[in-house]
Write a protein that binds this DNA or RNA. Structure first.
Length: 530
RNA sequence: GGCGACGUGGCCAAGUGGUAAGGCAAGGGAUUGCAAAUCCCUCAUUCGCCGGUUCGAAUCCGGCCGUCGCCUCCA
């Protein structure tokens, strides 16, 4: 494969502009993404954020860049501690529980594991070092066992979120704390209260404030400066603003981050997702009702930076789109006789970059354009062009919706060709079909779909819906058998009656060369009883 | 009060100066015993509204209207 010269452009929250991705070291990307605070089950909003950077990671890898991808777990936090106290267990137990939940969710929707996944509890030494350095550099002060960051000590404080301290002093809803020099000063170290976990420090027993852990983990693993920092849009202020203040205040190197990438938030049925509104969707609940890749496609249908609204209709449509993609792959498999790609997760059950589809050779390498004419010549060029169009869209700030548009164009053209019933058992036509499949699998690897052969996908979809609707499979098979007998007897009215009855129940039949198969119609409700 | 995002056909959505991708839905047709899948055709002279810049704007500028988010824990 020819080496690519990526011209990746990313929208940088700090400059509010799309700009070329500039790497500190050519060919090598250092990327840090804010993970989750592990105190509650993983919901669709978490999934969107994690998926956003999974796509970034995949595309950078596709562009032959070496990527060092770090995503943390915040396992020391007020909410975790509160929960631990309420349940009378160690905070580590709570953290462990939700880290496991996070993995179930993210492995479940095929997120690649980052290269490093540090936890706050493992970085206490580095945090203490950083706090001490900030005091030494005149950016922090200790009061009664607490340590605060002095926001006025850093001239450009507020540059990420474009906040001016003067503007914020009045009217802002900030608690008044007489011990702080400025209302926006934030805790780097908090003195312990009875019953809470604590670590020893020069300022007395305590625990880290909310923002310092990311500064400690990112600089420890990636250095004082790195290329990409990601997270949810809500983290811009105060979390990332404070992270900049801390990291740069301690290292003296500016900027600590070249490109700030933030994913937009997810709403549910036009409202903010919240527990009180009862519109809180867990990833684990969604992926028993819908194919995990449907959730991915739902997210990828809109740009990562914009808002997205989760609803039954939306994920339903995503699943239909997914069916169309797999439909094309399935037709190719059928006509070529079997599928070629049987990816398996690692022995530990999760996916890594090694499991991504890697083309071994281009089926078209020994099939020149002259081997084709007319419509096939056109499709030949489509195969040539798809990847360029796809990559260009992805290079442009990871425009997955635009990239998918090209993929669907391609699918329609492949289907059109297949509908003309070409002979695919040998010769250039076979190469063309293999190339089409190769292209689909390549973009699939970038989007994180096509983790199974199409036939298995459709079987799985059927079983999933079957289970969910509580339909008795044997009963269906029995009805199909009766219909087959009616058809053999040319008793079409009886056969159609059975078909209609099954459709009533959500079961659609497909009479194919290999006999009658059936699918469960879509349109399942998330609110249906499971 | 401060900061920000967004408003494109019935729905979702790409497109940020050169004359509206793609998907879902809908209607018609091909194929099929009937269906499913697939294919073909139709489906925004127009991009919230009003001005301005320009040979030319959904795309740039100004104003207005509307929706949403952050500023407190949040992906």
């Amino acid at each position: 494969m020819a080496p690519v010269e990526p011209s990746i452009r990313v929208y940088n929250t700090e400059t509010r502009k799309k700009e070329p991705l500039e790497l500190l070291e050519p060919g090598r990307v250092r990327m840090y993404v804010c993970g989750v605070t592990v105190y509650a089950p993983t919901h669709v909003g978490h999934a969107r954020a994690a998926l956003t950077f999974d796509i970034v990671y995949r595309h950078l890898l596709r562009r032959n860049l070496e990527v060092h991808y770090v995503r943390n777990f915040t396992d020391v936090d007020d909410k975790i501690i509160d929960k631990a106290i309420a349940e009378g267990v160690e905070f580590t137990e709570i953290a462990e529980r939700y880290i496991e939940d996070f993995y179930l969710a993210t492995d479940g929707i095929f997120l690649l594991r980052p290269d490093d996944e540090p936890r706050v509890s493992g970085y206490m030494d580095q945090i203490l070092e950083l706090v001490a350095k900030l005091i030494e550099n005149g950016h922090a002060y200790a009061v009664d066992g607490d340590v605060y960051y002095d926001v006025k000590s850093k001239a450009d404080y507020g540059r990420l979120s474009r906040r001016k301290l003067e503007d914020q002093e009045e009217g802002a809803r900030v608690e008044v704390d007489e011990r702080k020099r400025h209302p926006f000063d934030f805790a780097l170290w908090k003195s312990t209260k009875p019953g809470e976990p604590a670590w020893d420090s020069p300022w007395g027993p305590g625990r880290p404030g909310w923002h310092i852990e990311c500064s400690a983990m990112s600089t420890s693993l990636l250095g004082p400066q790195f290329d990409i920092h990601g997270g949810g849009i809500d983290l811009v202020f105060p979390h990332h603003e404070n992270e900049i203040a801390q990291t740069e205040g301690a290292t003296g190197q500016t900027p600590c981050v070249r490109h700030w990438l933030h994913n937009g938030h997810l709403g549910v049925n036009q409202e903010k997702m919240s527990k009180s509104l009862g519109n809180f969707f867990r990833v684990s609940d969604i992926i028993v009702r819908y194919h995990p890749e449907s959730l991915r496609l739902f997210f990828l249908s809109t740009h990562y930076r914009g808002p997205i609204d989760f609803s039954e209709e939306a994920i339903d449509e995503a699943e239909q789109r997914l069916e169309r993609l797999y439909g094309c792959l399935g037709l190719l498999d059928e006509r070529l006789g079997g599928s070629i790609y049987h990816p398996q997760p690692s022995s530990e059950g999760f996916w890594t970059r090694e499991q991504l589809y890697q083309p071994t050779s281009d089926p078209l390498s020994d099939a020149p354009a002259e081997a084709f004419e007319g419509a096939e010549r056109g499709l030949f060029h489509q195969c040539e062009g798809l990847l360029n169009k796809f990559d260009s869209a992805m290079d442009d700030d990871f425009n997955t919706a635009g990239a998918l548009g090209h993929v669907f164009d391609f699918v329609r053209k492949v289907n059109r060709w297949l509908a003309s019933e070409p002979e695919l058992t040998q010769g250039p036509q076979q190469k063309l079909a293999e190339a089409a499949r190769d292209r689909l699998l390549q973009v699939g690897a970038s989007l994180g779909i096509f983790h199974e052969p199409a036939a298995e996908f459709f079987d799985g979809l059927r079983d999933r819906r079957l289970r969910f609707l509580g339909i008795d499979e044997a009963e269906i098979e029995d009805a199909i058998q009766r219909r087959i007998e009616a058809r053999e007897a040319r008793d079409f009215p009886a056969a159609d009656a059975i078909r209609d009855e099954l459709i009533e129940r959500g079961v659609g039949l497909k009479d194919g060369a290999a006999g009658t198969t059936w699918v469960v119609q879509r349109g399942l409700s998330l609110s249906d009883p499971s």
